[in-house]
Nucleic acid binder design. Structure first.
Length: 473
DNA sequence: ATGTGC
């Protein structure tokens, strides 16, 4: 494959073979040649062959190998002529991040972090297979339709929280009738649970601020305490992805007969099966928004238990990084309806975008990029440049350096824990294996990822937060 | 990511 440099940190794979559009990669000169990247790049090229793809297939600097589509990938398909693909969204539909800002400073919490971590660990169900309470299928259908608003109505959090969620925490194209009974069964007792793997709750200290004026407006200043939630739609979204991959495989044989990779299975967006998947995917996205909303409420309870009634956790923003959205983008001077697949990629709309709440309209959309549990996470803002060049998208995280199995094989739990202890990071986890899989050594450097998205202008850095207590699945 | 496998 021929790769050419078109900017210091932007590369193009020119159209060749069955590619309908070129592929664009945002990364540095060292990473573009790394052997680990090559499989993911081939996946990106495969995506560029799919029907109705617009402009180019795009990879963010945190690109790595995934199911069919690479993680850290963006692909927009024509809403009339194009397709929708479960592999372009990922199994954890609306996996995403929420950032809460507290009115506490580091000095207020540093001596009570053990107590706080224990309170959270006792209040929020964590780990693979974790359960909350059982909800009926009728209730889950309301979750599908109303997303985070369902949770607020049930008493989990405040009406105001909804203003600061992507699309208000409610995707309007959700249709509960497109979701299988099996998905409802799996989802019935998992709303309000964290899950496992890379999902976490993190207490953070704001370590650096890059734009003081904007940060101030967002209630962010050095040494402020923030809380980050990273979770998704649990078994519910996973089952919906599984169901529709199987439906598309069985019922759209002809359409999918000539794929470069079977995992790119898809349906024409206009086809009833494509529409059903889209409507079900929106249900899972709403389930995930409700999940993060419920966890926010549980976190407020845990904080109040430790610090009393004067503590306040405000939702700064909540954004998805595994989702397909029907959006309007300007292409060659005309506005076009496209289905933007963001898989391990974060929406990053710029100032003036009508999707933003009034309070953020002049600064742009808050973007949340979590790193590994020993390094840092970032608050950034979306840009006009992103809207123009990447369908309003930026990176989503550090990206794995070691596979899960490799991490467990090569890393030592004692060393990982000692290193976290040395950095004064408190960790509570439901599983020892998870700690190895999620060790800082298993991830790429989030600082480098963020440096690239900031340098290329597809988002801009506002603050860097460091972990002080981590609750993992 | 996942009731961590077909």
């Amino acid at each position: 494959m021929k790769i050419e440099r078109i900017d210091e940190n932007i590369w193009i794979v020119k159209k060749e073979g069955r590619m309908r559009v070129p592929a664009i990669v945002y990364t540095d000169g060292k990473s573009i040649r790394s052997p680990e990247l090559q499989n993911a790049l081939q996946q990106l090229v495969n995506v560029a062959t799919m029907p109705g793809i617009i402009k180019y297939a795009i990879a963010m600097p945190d690109i790595h190998w995934g199911y069919g589509f690479p993680i850290g990938g963006v692909a927009a398909f024509d809403a009339e002529e194009g397709v929708i693909s479960p592999g372009g969204v990922g199994f954890d539909i609306n996996c995403g991040v929420r950032l809460l800002v507290s009115n506490l400073k580091y000095e207020d919490v540093e001596d009570r972090l053990d107590e706080l971590a224990n309170a959270i660990f006792e209040t929020v169900p964590v780990g693979v297979g974790s359960r909350s309470r059982k909800f009926s299928i009728d209730e889950l259908k309301k979750v599908c339709r109303d997303g985070a608003a369902w949770a607020v109505e049930k008493g989990y959090g405040e009406e105001e929280d909804l203003r600061y969620i992507e699309d208000g925490g409610k995707l309007k194209d959700a249709d509960p009738s497109s979701v299988s009974h099996k998905a409802y069964e799996r989802g019935s007792d998992e709303i309000g649970t964290l899950g496992g793997g890379n999902h976490f709750i993190e207490i953070q200290r704001v370590e650096s601020v890059y734009d003081r004026e904007v940060a101030e407006r967002l209630g962010i200043h050095e040494n402020a305490i923030t809380v980050m939630i990273h979770t998704g739609s649990r078994g519910f979204g996973h089952q919906i992805a599984t169901d529709y991959i199987s439906i598309m495989r069985n019922e759209l044989r002809q359409h999918n007969s000539d794929l470069p990779d079977k995992q790119l299975i898809n349906a024409p967006f206009k086809h009833p099966i494509g529409q059903d998947y889209f409507h079900a995917m929106c249900c899972a996205a709403n389930y995930a928004f409700a999940n993060r909303q419920m966890i926010t409420h549980l976190l407020r309870k845990a904080f109040t238990k430790v610090f009393g009634g004067s503590v306040h956790l405000k939702v700064l923003y909540d954004v998805a990084h595994n989702v397909a959205k029907l959006e309007t983008h300007e292409l060659d001077g005309t506005r076009k309806r496209v289905v933007v697949h963001r898989k391990g990629a974060t929406r990053a709309f710029g100032p003036g975008n009508s999707a933003l709440p009034a309070e953020y309209k002049d600064i742009g959309q808050p973007v949340l990029i979590p790193g590994d549990m020993g390094t840092a996470s970032y608050l950034l803002l979306g840009t006009k440049r992103a809207e123009k060049d990447t369908f309003g998208t930026t990176a989503h995280g550090a990206g794995r350096r070691l596979g899960r199995r490799q991490a467990k094989r090569e890393l030592s739990l004692v060393k990982v824990m000692d290193e976290l202890k040395r950095k004064k990071i408190i960790v509570r986890s439901a599983s020892r294996g998870t700690l190895l899989e999620e060790a800082p050594e298993a991830y790429k450097d989030v600082d480098e990822i963020v440096w690239i998205v900031d340098k290329t202008g597809i988002s801009r850095k506002i603050a860097r937060m460091v972990p002080i207590a981590v609750i993992k699945g």
